[in-house]
Design a protein around this nucleic acid. Structure first.
Length: 611
DNA sequence: TTAGGGTTAG
């Protein structure tokens, strides 16, 4: 994997060096030449005639839907295969798509037109200018033509603006093609490739590209720095990004708010609020006023970490200071209040937003629907869902999953099942969250077979299960003492490389204990502790109870020891149970019992009060 | 209206 560059000391120069690497590929260098010569060999009068007909034909192509069927019979005297005529059409049309359609028609088997390189070049450039990258790509596949490096650079930049993975892949492959032929793209193109890679989350590619930039003697600018800072943040290396920021600030360059906001967001995620504060001060000192995006990052992250009061305080404070929260900001705050079950406050914000003329969108609707479901106002949630649909917002995987999980949470599993079916009928994709919510709901009602069917179904569909997919299934199987099936699921999870939720161990240990398989329970407990996981107190207690009932006193002492080491204290009821059990034994074991009791008493005194 | 931000389980 490519590593981030070790130093940025010489990253920015005011003036970029000239592009010294020349294209050694004669094929690329000669493309597109000869147009002047071409034009000069024809008479002016012929040109005027062609122009007139091209005007008419262009109009036909523009306005008549099925012009392909009649064009030749309508203009029997026109030689459509004359390249010069096509050039005239291009001039008249000034529409890349129509020209391309005309070219495809002319080139089809019946007509057999072969466009010259100049024509290809004009069409390709106009497609790129119209940002029609898909058409440009299909055009390249259709003709035997390689655009000039400058055209390819524009194509790369256009592809990188698209921000989707396929475009970025294509851009990078064209980029590699240029480099292969020794052509060194301009800084603007390097930057757009960096931008595209950042957008696509391809951080390896960012470092690779940056390494190549340095190798080629290309010196970045403030945009380059911005993309590198973003790359560091995505790589969870926020402090390295901050270091880079400080370096360029020292050199007198100030990146845009985007870079600052990414760093702030990264520090918020890490809970490093002193760095957030320092960054806010730096922004103000550098005349970059923290904007709505800056505060939205802060509020969003505070709420995610459960510090909703502080988030709400900042939100209200911003309004007092004259910031106008927008729809996203309102949605973030409403969602956060919903998460905290502050449904009254969330509703107030909703109406405040509407009063200000900001219309809720699908995100806002889903956030409040989620909140209403969470507190059990299912009817209100349904009502709002209807309103959302009436307003023209489409039902989505998220909207359905929100309702399904809300219904399941409040025991209305049948209604959830109906919605689950409806999704299929309406062609709305179910994702792993939809399945997990439904599986949880069904498990709660002990409908294990239905849940297992859903697990099979999601696997068949090629969805990647998560730990939650298995958690409730294993929990219920253990509760129902079907330990064999629970263990099969456990192994299945492990084979798929899914890290089980910690509580899954607890369920299995408790299940084994309840079934009297205490030795195996001990094995699982040991495995759990060895992995540094913390069992729940009830897990220890249940195992201790079952061990003591099975007269396994040594193991009781061992588990008690583990439990105290983890930091739990022995509750009275369990203590009583164990002591009763010990005192029940015959006199031969008196000495041993005394030792045990002594051990318990001693630990009881020294164990920490609260954990 | 430069970019950059928001919704579903556990």
């Amino acid at each position: 994997m490519a590593r981030p560059p070790p130093s940025f000391k010489t990253l920015i120069h005011r003036q970029n060096p000239p592009r010294t690497i020349q294209n050694p590929n004669p094929q690329i260098r000669t493309l597109g030449g000869g147009s002047e010569e071409f034009v000069q060999t024809h008479h002016q009068s012929k040109l005027e005639g062609l122009t007139q007909i091209a005007k008419e034909v262009s109009k036909v192509i523009r306005t008549r839907p099925r012009w392909e069927r009649t064009l030749i019979s309508d203009y029997p005297s026109v030689n459509f295969l004359d390249p010069q005529f096509f050039h005239e059409i291009l001039k008249q049309q000034n529409n890349a798509f129509l020209s391309l359609r005309f070219l495809y028609w002319l080139s089809s088997a019946n007509h057999g037109f072969v466009p010259d390189k100049l024509l290809c070049s004009v069409i390709f450039d106009s497609l790129v200018e119209a940002k029609a990258t898909n058409a440009a790509k299909s055009f390249l596949g259709f003709v035997d033509f390689t655009p000039q490096p400058d055209s390819l650079e524009r194509y790369i930049r256009c592809l990188c603006e698209n921000c989707d993975n396929r475009s970025i892949e294509e851009a990078l492959s064209v980029f590699d093609y240029l480099k292969e032929f020794g052509f060194c793209p301009a800084l603007e193109t390097w930057n757009s490739a960096l931008f595209g890679s950042v957008q696509a989350g391809k951080i390896d590619v960012v470092w690779k590209l940056y390494g190549e930039m340095m190798d080629n003697g290309i010196v970045g600018d403030v945009d380059t720095v911005e993309y590198l800072i973003q790359a560091f943040c995505i790589d969870n290396n926020v402090s390295k990004g901050y270091e880079l920021l400080r370096q360029v600030l020292e050199d007198g360059f100030v990146p845009s708010n985007v870079a600052f906001n990414k760093l702030i967001s990264g520090f918020c995620k890490d809970g490093k609020y002193s760095s957030v504060s320092a960054l806010l001060h730096t922004m103000i000192a550098k005349n970059c006023r923290p904007d709505i995006y800056t505060y939205q990052e802060i509020i969003h992250n505070l709420c995610k970490r459960g510090v909703w009061r502080e988030g709400f305080r900042i939100f209200n404070d911003l309004k007092d200071r004259g910031y106008a929260p927008d729809r996203v900001m309102y949605t973030t705050m409403i969602h956060c209040l919903c998460e905290m079950k502050r449904i009254g406050d969330a509703r107030k914000l909703w109406f405040e937003m509407v009063r200000k003329g900001i219309l809720p969108n699908e995100y806002t609707y889903n956030a409040l629907i989620y909140g209403l479901c969470k507190v059990g106002y299912i009817e209100d949630a349904k009502e709002l869902y209807k309103e959302m649909c009436c307003r023209g917002y489409k039902e989505t995987t998220v909207s359905y999953s929100t309702m399904i999980s809300g219904l399941c949470l409040h025991g209305r599993t049948e209604e959830a099942c109906e919605l689950f079916q409806e999704m299929d009928e309406k062609g709305i994709a179910r994702d792993i969250i939809t399945y997990n919510s439904m599986i949880q709901g069904l498990c709660k009602e002990l409908k294990i077979r239905e849940s297992m069917n859903l697990l099979d179904e999601l696997l068949e569909k090629g969805l990647q299960p998560s730990a939650s997919t298995y958690t409730s299934l294993i929990e219920k199987l253990c509760e129902m003492e079907d330990l064999d099936k629970a263990k099969i699921l456990w192994r299945d999870m492990q084979n798929r490389g899914i890290e089980p939720a910690v509580c899954t161990y607890d369920f299995i240990i408790t299940g084994l204990s309840n079934k009297g398989y205490v030795a195996e329970g001990m094995e699982w407990l040991n495995a759990m502790l060895k992995s540094g996981l913390r069992p729940q107190q009830q897990t220890f207690e249940r195992l201790i109870q079952c061990l003591s009932r099975a007269d396994k006193l040594d193991e009781v002492i061992l588990v008690l020891d583990y439990m105290f080491n983890v930091g739990y204290v022995l509750r009275k009821s369990i203590c009583q149970d164990v002591v009763d059990r010990l005192c029940d034994k015959n006199s031969l074991q008196t000495l041993h019992i005394e030792t045990c009791l002594g051990f318990i008493m001693q630990k009881e005194i020294t164990a920490p009060e609260v954990f």
